[in-house]
Nucleic acid binder design. Structure first.
Length: 530
RNA sequence: CGCAGUGUAGCAUAAGGGUAAUGCGCUUGCCUCAUAAGCAAGAAAAUAUGGGUUCGAGUCCCAUCGCUGCGACCA
């Protein structure tokens, strides 16, 4: 095993745009980030999970105006809704980076200055049709006949003829291509990488990083009539997030400990910004590049794209409210292969949770504890892993399970992690049936009963431990019923290298546990009435 | 339109060219420790369609159809 305590790991979700309250897609990315962060912390690694919000731009300015609000108060309100959702979902973020936070402006200015001094920013004239909703220029041919944007059909594109500051992206073409080649893992999954490669191959053009007539944002330092383009501002939110609370907002202070970021988790829609523009900006500023950008897929509902126009959105608040954080987290982590698109279907949701969490896991614990009470006065057998024959099917599966699951988490293959653990749980139920402790007990074979129950309970424990990053509440409950005083939401007590070393192995359950009363840890869900 | 990817039982996924697997759901049987949970057996797909290569193709090639992504600033 590697020397985890010496490692540190910084990862980010996107800084979500505060145009509206969070949707399920943002929740998905954030849940995944949290699961990975939790697993690494469990291993004793030092982790920094960054999330936050991107709050500038013309769109926010206008959204706020439409509500008759100041932009800042609009942002504050939306931010509160993000934070509320993350709390409900048990997201343990370390930093919440807002682009309207005070230190951010200083960071943006300093960064801008570096790129400016490098000669990578110049003034030029920008003409074209601009869609405010997209915050981008459109080609004439992209527009619909009535001149509206194809994505925002209710909104006419606006003709702009203005001076903009441009970033010399084209200058970094070669360096980017070298980067992609030398570090094939930089963009994942591979299908996304190919998209980027294709895009870059066409030849990179400079892009504008300022706007005029936009109030809501930072002024371009040498020319305050201009406002820095939201993306240039937003990406730097990852840097600002690294500042310690009391530190002066300088790049040096921000980059000292956690830079470069190990992993940017993003949705596939913002891949180019993270895989092309962002590294180019950093190259220009002569800063080290992040280790990896992972662009995951989108979620659909009942096989259909979600959208306000279709009216088939999935409200994450409602979902957690009805089913709880563990259920929601488990479903999305287990039932979608990370990277590919995933689908939400309520019937499938309920079936999976009942089968995996209520039946395979919850009921397994419950039946095992029930037997322990009846056949062993509720005391754990005085056994250790060595007392269990090596042919024991649970021991065989359990022995290397920790390593397999760790590898799956490490590779962001969360569905595989779950699947590996489920194999042990299913084998466990089968093992109990095959061994029929109730018969053994009636025949007075106490030793046999104890061997079976020890193996069963230990396997449940190991499963709960390895699933803790995904279902922290359930795992805590299970651990509680097994006599541990360990709350997987309490970072101070669970995240220790030595604990991981011990608990990720089969056979860690001590004999002298005071078991609390057994009760179902995950109630079966009912299909909502039509 | 161009480029790329994809198409396996009701659903989700697996199968280095050689008897199509697993989970969920469904049917039946068994058990009784348990949350109407568990275990076992079973039904169900000629692997989108049409060609080709091969002794043999889900697996390679071509075409067609369907879906998805990318095609310059989509927060």
């Amino acid at each position: 095993m590697k020397d985890y305590p010496s490692q540190k790991f910084a990862l980010t979700t996107p800084l979500y745009y505060v145009n509206a309250i969070p949707h399920i897609g943002s929740a998905y990315t954030t849940m995944v980030a949290d699961v990975l962060a939790r697993f690494k912390r469990l291993q004793g690694q030092e982790v920094l999970l960054i999330t936050g919000t991107d709050e500038h731009g013309l769109k926010i300015q206008r959204t706020a105006a439409a509500k008759g609000r100041e932009p800042q108060s609009h942002c504050d309100e939306i931010v509160a809704s993000f934070q509320a959702l993350w709390d409900k979902l048990e997201i343990q973020y370390d930093r919440f980076s807002r682009t309207t936070a005070k230190p951010h402006e200083a960071i943006v200015k300093e960064f801008f200055a570096r790129v400016w001094e490098k000669g990578d920013i110049y003034l030029d004239r920008q003409q074209g049709w601009y869609c405010v909703a997209c915050e981008e220029f459109k080609e004439k041919r992209e527009l619909l006949e009535d001149g509206s944007c194809p994505i925002h059909t209710n909104l006419k594109a606006e003709w702009k003829d203005e001076d903009n500051y441009f970033f010399r992206l084209s200058k970094y073409q070669q360096q980017l291509e070298t980067l992609y080649e030398e570090r094939p893992d930089f963009i994942q999954p591979e299908s996304r990488r190919n998209e980027v490669l294709n895009f870059v191959k066409q030849g990179l053009q400079d892009f504008s990083i300022s706007r005029v007539n936009v109030e809501w944002g930072f002024p371009v330092p040498p020319d305050p009539k201009h406002t820095i383009y939201v993306w240039f501002d937003a990406l730097l939110g990852y840097v600002t997030a690294l500042l310690e609370e009391s530190a002066e907002p300088t790049l040096d202070n921000a980059l000292g400990k956690w830079w470069p970021i190990n992993l940017h988790l993003i949705g596939k829609d913002i891949l180019r910004f993270h895989a092309v523009y962002w590294p180019a900006m950093l190259l220009s500023a002569e800063l080290p590049l992040p280790e990896k950008v992972f662009g995951h897929g989108f979620l659909t509902k009942d096989g259909q794209k979600m959208g306000k126009s279709l009216g088939n959105t999935l409200d994450p608040f409602d979902l957690v409210e009805r089913y709880g954080a563990d259920a929601v987290r488990y479903y999305f982590l287990k039932e979608t292969e990370f990277g590919r698109d995933g689908d939400f279907n309520e019937t499938r949701f309920i079936n999976i949770l009942n089968a995996d969490l209520a039946n395979d896991l919850g009921n397994l614990l419950n039946r095992s504890l029930g037997m322990l009470k009846k056949y062993c006065q509720g005391n754990l057998p005085q056994l250790t892993a060595e007392d269990i024959p090596s042919a024991n099917p649970l021991k065989k599966i359990g022995e290397k399970l920790g390593d397999r699951v760790a590898a799956a988490y490490e590779n962001l293959q969360f569905h595989l992690a779950c699947e590996e653990i489920l194999k042990l749980l299913r084998a466990n139920n089968k093992f109990i049936d095959d061994s029929a402790p109730w018969k053994a007990f009636k025949q007075g074979q106490q030793q046999e009963v104890e061997l079976v129950l020890y193996s069963a309970l230990e396997s449940v424990r190991l499963s709960a431990y390895l699933l803790a990053p995904i279902i922290p509440n359930l795992s805590s409950d299970i651990y509680g019923q097994l006599g541990f005083d360990l709350d997987f939401n309490n970072q101070n007590t669970v995240n220790k290298f030595n604990l991981y070393k011990q608990h990720s192995q089969w056979g860690a359950i001590p004999a002298n546990q005071n078991l609390t009363k057994a009760k179902p840890v995950f109630a079966r869900l009912e299909l909502p009435a039509e």
